[in-house]
Design a protein around this nucleic acid. Structure first.
Length: 871
RNA sequence: GCGAAAGUGGCGGAACUGGUAGACGCGCUGGAUUUAGGUUCCAGUGGGCAACCCCCGUGAGGGUUCGAGUCCCUCCUUUCGCACCA
């Protein structure tokens, strides 16, 4: 064995051994328990970032651990390959998005291989391949047949320069993020998926998903947003016809306090009223144009205009004026609200501004009878309470009032209890080139005609170069000029593509059967699904994870898959941060310096007191730890690091520095520390097997071990218990590594050259190498062989602790006096509580503490590890 | 405003079921090796005290308990998500 640890050689040896035996290719095996471990697939942006490395290392640790536990483990990898950055790169460099994407994939695949992840590359897929998106199109057509997909004209953010729809997050201060052009609201026909149909089930199932983080479940529940209330109809006459204005409210108990109704600008009633009222028409236009940022809307001034129309209060029969309000959303509830200024903050402000009457009809719980008359809003106005000034409902508390009012409304045919959802249907049309074509043909005679199944996939041309002025598909007659499949006449192919979230909504199913060109999924998907462990960033807590849950339900209802929840267990890994250093110039410009170029100044304790640029020795400002980004110049490159330290050291550092869900602060010193640890492991094994010149494995005589040898052995097995629990149950890796470090520290001090001492040491090293195998697989692969094993470590069964080794003759008992640690005594492991109590009281130190005081109680809690003497 | 999480040494973190606070590592200090730097090894490292077998100490204040970082109440701070959702 070589004395020097050379990471490049070690990693080459391990990786080629795995490659030769195709070690990570898996097939379905009904005889073995399966384990599907999946990390969210990356967008091929160019290079791996450290967040990827962290994510995939976690997945790899679990994959390798479960494999050693005897599971048939699938860990695949693919590419979320459609999307905007490829188009932007194309605009900048004049290269087709396809080429840019495939080049990036090739490079990043190399990076993943460098890191030694146990991936089954036979199952690699990219969502931009026709063989993949074929099935997006196929399933979309099935959804269309079932009414789950439908076309609707909806309001979207439109960038007039780029000629495309923008997502809400792409609108900054009312302007397009790329062009800076003021964003318009446009009504555009789009395809939607009826995710709302599954709202109830998507919400209910969350309660049972105990293996998902509470946070993610809460966010999804919030997003789905179920609320129970009452739909209330306010009748009115229009052109001699009786009509009803519906509103939705969760506070039907305040109905008698209604002094106006407000409708959204897009509401039909508003449109009708504006016909003969130019001022109102203009106001409505203004509202429609208004800002697209929801956060801004929230703080926007409440404005309105009367429509001049009146509706009738359904219970009192009084006339109620109808206003158009800019704070009413067309997309929620009925697009109209009843205005109860006495008990709703928004209505209150609105009424004050426009001089509408305010009626108080609820006396909040805990308040005295006095009415609220302030001209300033108070939170208690919207509190629950009993009805007052509400005729027959007076004295009823919230729930009773709601029940009574709903019953009366129902009797009149003017309302009923109703459940409202915040969730909206998923609009999937994008006026973008680099995405999956929507398989429809727009025929002037026949309307929207689905592309026949036998003509699928509709292949996206890969050679186009967008120039920033809209979708290049619209300038490509060879793509859009088609004949109608129904009437044979001239027609135009749909040039919108699908939202890229469609691609990622089912890729985990396809990994089971990437080679199947006849069906979207087959029986193998039922073998592998559900994903047992899914790992990815918290940023996908809602969109991707909710869409995938929806998509699975659709496929299950079509009989294509048996389970409905795609991800049994979810781990949301924390972000990777690094220091940010900057200098602010007088003219407002900021220059960012890479942490490598900055020298940190410390005080005598090692506390950071300042930082300066190495180049010029002048101070720079520390802006804290934030996510790595190009703009802040604080990224680190995985490939650089692998070359400098080796993949194993990077992996150890990533797993050791923080628990999986927490943020991880990058530190070069920390990586050095991990590299030191790996080197030390190598050197200690070398000293054991080689320097001593006795490579044979001594036979271990358990009965004849000395107390020190027994203690060493006990510690090795206790560490195994701890590490197994950390991997298997707790899913934390930092403490597992810490435990192994502790064991190594003890082993270093275990200076015993006897046959038995060497045997104990040998066993300890075997355990260490097995325990670290999932985290530092390359070095452990080689050390395992050096320890005399012919079988590859990855296939060696996970070791079991020896119960004999864990037995202790004598145990240490902590002795407290009044809850404070005062002494420790050693007793036999089988000592009774009475014996322990006696030993504690007999201890000289304890004698001093209790001298002259009355011992009131002596407590020995279960476990016999502690005694508390109460005096 | 609503929802979720978190506040522990100079730093990252550990303490899992209420039972030895600060494991493990980074940094720092001293020493050995080295021509030197780096590497490696040894020792020390929460604060107070000349020192301890002492006192203090887990965001603040109160409470429960033989015993509280952990449980309860009040408050403060931070991060994240949602936000005119009627």
């Amino acid at each position: 064995m070589q004395e020097r640890y050379e990471h490049a050689a070690v990693e080459r040896a391990a990786q080629s051994a795995w490659a030769e035996t195709r070690a990570f290719a898996v097939t379905e095996d009904p005889k073995r328990p399966k384990y599907y471990c999946l990390c969210m697939f990356p967008y091929p942006s160019g290079r791996l970032h450290m967040g990827h490395v962290r994510n995939y290392t976690m997945g790899d640790v679990l994959t390798r651990y479960m494999r050693m536990q005897g599971y048939n483990v699938l860990q695949p990898m693919g590419w979320d390959a459609f999307g905007l950055p490829a188009e932007n790169a194309a605009i900048k460099n004049g290269v087709p998005p396809a080429k840019w994407t495939y080049d990036n994939i090739a490079y990043m695949k190399g990076q993943l291989q460098q890191l030694g992840f146990a991936l089954d590359w036979n199952r690699e897929l990219a969502t931009c391949q026709p063989a993949y998106y074929h099935w997006n199109q196929w399933l979309f057509l099935r959804m269309l047949e079932r009414g789950i997909a439908y076309k609707k004209t909806g309001v979207v953010n439109w960038d007039p320069v780029d000629q495309t729809v923008l997502a809400n997050e792409q609108v900054l201060d009312g302007r397009g993020w790329r062009t800076g052009a003021p964003v318009e609201k446009r009504e555009i026909p789009m395809y939607y998926l009826r995710i709302t149909q599954y709202a109830q089930d998507l919400l209910e199932e969350l309660d049972r998903m105990q293996e998902w983080p509470e946070r993610v479940r809460a966010m999804q529940a919030n997003w789905i947003g179920r609320s129970e209330g009452v739909r209330i109809g306010f009748p009115y006459q229009l052109a001699g016809e009786r009509r009803v204005l519906n509103v939705f409210t969760t506070r039907a108990d305040t109905l008698m306090g209604t002094t106006f109704c407000a409708v959204a600008a897009e509401h039909p009633l508003a449109t009708h009223a504006a016909r003969n009222d130019p001022a109102l028409a203009e106001f409505i236009e203004e509202c429609k144009r208004g800002t697209a940022q929801e956060a801004e809307i929230a703080v926007m001034e409440k404005r309105g205009m009367p429509t001049g129309m009146f509706v009738t209060h359904p219970l009192s029969g009084e006339p109620v004026p109808v206003w158009v309000g800019n704070y009413v959303l067309m997309t929620y509830g009925e697009g109209a609200v009843m205005g109860v200024p006495g008990h709703d903050e928004r209505d209150f402000g609105f009424a004050l501004k426009y001089g509408l009457p305010i009626k108080f009809v609820i006396r909040p719980d805990g308040a005295n009878a006095a009415e609220f008359t302030t001209r300033e809003w108070r939170p208690e106005y919207s509190a629950y309470g009993v009805c007052v000034h509400s005729g027959k409902y007076d004295g009823l508390h919230y729930q009773a009032a709601v029940d009574a009012i709903a019953a009366d409304l129902q009797a009149k045919g003017l309302g009923e209890k109703q459940v409202q959802w915040r969730l909206r249907d998923w609009g999937i049309s994008r006026q973008r080139y680099w995405g999956c074509p929507i398989p429809l043909i727009l025929c002037p005679k026949c309307g929207d005609v689905p592309v026949p199944d036998q003509d699928l996939p509709v292949v996206l041309p890969e050679n186009l170069v967008p120039d920033g002025t809209g979708n290049p598909l619209n300038k490509t007659p060879s793509f859009y000029e088609v004949k109608c499949p129904q009437c044979g006449g001239d027609a135009r192919r749909e040039t919108d593509t699908m939202d890229t979230f469609v691609d990622s909504s089912w890729y985990f199913l396809r990994f089971a059967c990437t080679d199947d060109d006849r069906a979207m999924v087959d029986e193998r998907a039922n073998y592998w699904m559900a994903v047992d462990q899914y790992i990815g960033g918290i940023e996908h807590a809602i969109l991707h994870l909710l869409y995938s849950r929806f998509w699975m339900r659709v496929m299950r209802d079509m009989g294509m898959i048996q389970v409905k929840e795609p991800f049994a267990r979810l781990l949301t890994q924390g972000m990777v941060l690094n220091n940010i250093y900057s200098r602010h110039a007088g003219d407002g410009r900021v220059e960012y310096f890479h942490p490598d170029d900055v020298e940190v100044q410390l005080d005598a304790n090692g506390a950071q007191i300042g930082a300066k640029l190495r180049r010029d020795g002048q101070p720079v400002q520390w802006e804290g730890m934030r996510t790595m980004s190009k703009s802040k110049n604080n990224g680190v490159d995985p490939t650089d690091l692998v070359e400098r330290f080796g993949a194993d050291s990077i992996r150890v550092f990533m797993m050791f520095k923080a628990p999986p869900e927490d943020t991880l602060e990058w530190s070069d010193d920390g990586v050095e520390g991990s590299a030191r640890f790996v080197r030390r492991l190598w050197r200690m094994v070398w000293e054991h097997v080689d320097r001593d010149g006795k490579t044979g494995v001594p036979r271990q005589e358990l009965v004849a071990l000395s107390p020190a040898q027994r203690e060493m052995r006990r510690m090795a097995h206790a560490t195994l218990v701890k590490v197994t629990d950390d991997y298997g149950r707790r899913r934390v890796f930092n403490t597992a590594i810490a435990a192994v470090m502790e064991l190594m520290n003890a082993l270093q001090k275990f200076d015993d050259a006897s046959e038995q001492g060497r045997a104990v040491r040998h066993e300890a090293f075997e355990l260490i190498v097995q325990m670290l195998g999932p985290i530092a697989p390359h070095v452990c692969h080689v050390l395992w062989k050096e320890l005399g094993h012919a079988d590859p470590l990855i296939d060696h069964p996970w070791p079991h602790p020896d119960p004999q080794a864990l037995v202790q003759d004598r145990i240490e008992v902590v002795v407290q006096v009044n809850g404070k640690l005062r002494s420790k005594v050693e007793v036999g492991a089988s000592a009774s509580q009475d014996e322990i109590r006696a030993a504690a009281l007999a201890d000289a130190t304890i004698q001093k503490w209790i001298e002259g005081k009355a011992v009131r109680k002596v407590i020995v809690p279960p476990g016999n590890k502690l005694v508390n003497v109460v005096v």
